[in-house]
């Protein structure tokens, strides 16, 4: 168990969550391995987003425990969790829509205790260079001076991803990163997610609806159905699992 603790950056133990009378999460336990890419799949309404929101602190959980880097976080607030280095992106992409892309990037620097920039730091120098190179990384360099609210939905999504990278989180939780993105661009996005994981060393945890994406991306996948954990394992194992096929793949995918 002790060795497991060290390799798992997030541990979810027996989490229950219900809204009114609806049980959204029932006795869910899962782990996110440090340095890896973990996937969460499941049909609509299976409780993936609820689990996600529980981890990042968007709502309280009924019982259970959520541990990030050996620290209980199930009582902390969103901002506190983010400042520990556990960041999320939104399914309905959220950016600062009246600011231009560079400014969006600059303000997304880490606000942890070890952050390199102070409160009244000028907006230039190394931080600016890093912002520009990350915009380059996601392919938005030529759009950098545009007001971000004027970008297309897919571009906003990429910007949000770049902003998350700018923050240098330890773990990044991505809520349906390919939803609403032009299918021809999806391979590029998968490639960038891989590179962010390998080159920047950011642990990823991805909620995905698109089976092909998650099979290509994740090393370990959890499958949820009706609020319960149905199965977990390597992509190949899950593809062969009859319960997963019945609950999810059977539904036309």
């Amino acid at each position: 168990m002790k060795s497991l603790l060290h390799s798992n950056i997030i541990e979810v133990h027996n989490v229950f969550k219900s809204f009114g009378g609806v049980h959204a999460n029932i006795d869910i336990s899962m782990h996110v391995k440090k340095g890896g890419i973990t996937g969460i799949i499941g049909p609509n309404g299976c409780g993936k987003s609820t689990l996600f929101n529980s981890i990042v602190g968007a709502h309280p959980i009924d019982s259970g425990s959520i541990i990030f880097e050996e620290r209980e976080i199930s009582k902390l607030l969103v901002g506190q969790i983010a400042r520990l280095g556990l960041l999320r992106t939104f399914q309905q992409t959220r950016i600062y829509s009246k600011m231009n892309c560079v400014d969006n990037m600059l303000i997304s620097v880490s606000h942890r205790k070890d952050a390199r920039d102070g409160l009244f730091a000028p907006r230039k120098g190394e931080t600016l260079e890093r912002a520009l190179s990350l915009l380059e990384f996601v392919g938005l360099y030529s759009k950098r001076n545009l007001i971000s609210g004027d970008l297309s939905f897919g571009q906003q999504k990429l910007l949000e991803f770049a902003m998350a990278l700018m923050n240098e989180p330890k773990v990044l939780l991505l809520d349906e990163p390919t939803a609403g993105i032009n299918p021809t661009l999806i391979n590029g996005l998968i490639d960038r997610l891989h590179r962010a994981n390998e080159e920047l060393g950011i642990t990823l945890c991805v909620i995905e609806h698109n089976m092909r994406v998650v099979m290509n991306l994740a090393e370990h996948i959890y499958c949820l159905a009706n609020g319960r954990l149905l199965a977990d394992g390597k992509p190949t194992e899950l593809q062969a699992d009859q319960r997963v096929i019945d609950a999810y793949l059977g539904g036309g995918h």
Partner: peptide, 16 residues
């Protein structure tokens, strides 16, 4: 400015 545009996002990005 970030707080003005989307305070929940600013919180989620760790801005105090």
């Amino acid at each position: 400015n970030a707080i003005r545009d989307d305070e929940d996002k600013a919180e989620a990005m760790g801005i105090p």
